[in-house]
Design a protein around this nucleic acid. Structure first.
Lengths: 76, 76
DNA sequence: TTTTAATATAATTTC
DNA sequence: GAAATTATATTAAT
């Protein structure tokens, strides 16, 4: 008997090299367009949507750290 | 993300009354046709395919016990 | 060694 | 896409 099940994509384990390139791109452009993402995808042998999610999460991490440091500042 | 998964039908728990009637039918006819199975299904408030599977399993059990007793006989 | 808890972050959901 | 949440891989402590 077959049934539709929701299945999570297995977590992608980026290599150091992949993260290094992504980070260096992030420093100059944290909102890469589809063109650049496709380019990175090909260079890093990843799917473009992995790249897109990586940048979403990276931006979230940046905003989080920014908020936390502002908070520390305000508490002084 | 959706994926096809094989899902087991929840095991049917036959009542004693259901098994009693099925057993008594089995004694006189271990290969009931669709007509009789539908009839039993309605009487027992079960799906006809549950009945069909029950008879398949019951015949297998019978053959198993038959083989075992033959074996015992031959070993004597 | 095995188990548990904390952490980082990938993936998903909700808006 | 942002924010919030969930899930999982890794690591540290036991």
């Amino acid at each position: 008997r077959l049934k539709w099940c929701v299945v999570r994509r297995p977590r992608t384990a980026f290599t150091n090299g992949q993260v290094n390139l992504l980070e260096s791109v992030f420093q100059v452009n944290s909102y890469p367009g589809i063109r650049l993402r496709e380019d990175l995808a090909q260079k890093l042998e990843l799917d473009e949507d992995r790249i897109q999610i990586w940048f979403q999460n990276r931006r979230a991490k940046f905003r989080r750290s920014f908020r936390e440091s502002s908070l520390q500042f305000m508490q002084k």
